[in-house]
Design a binder for these strands. Sequence first.
DNA 1: ACCTGAACACCGTTCAAGT
DNA 2: ACCTGAACACCGTTCAAGT
Lengths: 205, 205
Amino acid sequence: MPKTTTTYHHGDLRNALIQAGLSILQTDGEATLTLRKVAREAGVSHAAPYRHFADKTALLSAIAQQGFDLLTAQLQAAATDFSDTPQRILLETGLNYIQFARQYPDHFRLMFGGVLRAAGPDAPLRAAAEQTFAQVVNAVATSQACGIVKAGDTHQLATTAWSMAHGLADLAVEGMLGQPTNSTADVEQIARFSLQQLLVGLLGR
Amino acid sequence: MPKTTTTYHHGDLRNALIQAGLSILQTDGEATLTLRKVAREAGVSHAAPYRHFADKTALLSAIAQQGFDLLTAQLQAAATDFSDTPQRILLETGLNYIQFARQYPDHFRLMFGGVLRAAGPDAPLRAAAEQTFAQVVNAVATSQACGIVKAGDTHQLATTAWSMAHGLADLAVEGMLGQPTNSTADVEQIARFSLQQLLVGLLGR
DNA sequence: ACCTGAACACCGTTCAAGT
DNA sequence: ACCTGAACACCGTTCAAGT
């Protein structure tokens, strides 16, 4: 009997609502993600969600948080995959970050659009975002250990690396990268090139 | 008699609506930016905007486009200011980009959030965004000419520089930079550091 | 040609009432 | 404790009608 399953008439409505919202997000985008539709999809009345979320923003926050958790796991998995070639870990982390954004563009946009900005400094959503960032910090630390990134403030260097990957990811999602085709190959190419340029700078001279 | 002034009962409603929308955006944010409110602020009925915009998205696009025009002008002005110290032009362009994002966070978010993604390849909004990008291309070309950026595909190098600045700007707007204070000084510091790291890479060896 | 007012379908949120 | 149904104020969009 796991304590996380808050049983109700159909099981765990809170999670059912998050899943329903996620499904709508991936199929129809954020514009059509309405609280009433989420309730409909979960098979409850439109007022039921208010037993589990204070308002619509709270549900969106929970969905965004789930996105950060997923991204964190994905970056962690990539780090494990390349644990025997640590020189490549930072590059691969960046490429993975961009791949996530392109795979779940609406989820990515939700994570970094407004909800995060509105979240206070100690909101659980911020903590989830910082966990994602921690993966970048780890990748930088590993890179420093194996000498492809110079010594120095790891946190600061990680912020730089994160900004590069995030900028590429966001521009890719907006369709401003690899113009005019914007194909996967184009985006991969410019992403690799950009990350490598930065890595030269981070190596120092 | 300028031909741009399409007179109507009160003057140029199209522009009045854009201005009203802009005002709401800067004071209350995108969440409260409603078509009816814009009409109210412009002093017309809620159906009047449909004589000038196909739907709400079209108005938001026009506002976003105005944002790109403003940003382009700002970057151009910065380039002029530093025309006698061309080695600094790329750094200053990046800092200016970030400053714009922090000064008009909701406008910045609107420009890169959804509206652009929905815009087709030959929408006027995309052209405006590309004009902004052209400023970065110019800065890179200048930097190549004065030898602080290596020779090579200018467009590609500019995309790299744009991604760095854009990532910093977006994370700053979301409050993920210069934690925990997120003060102007913090953001400026990490932005300068990050851009400089990239510049070392772009110089080559 | 440009604007208004009523109308429609929808939304977020609240609340008394049900089990 | 958790959910429903009606209700309220609001929104985007359409359309006949006004000037």
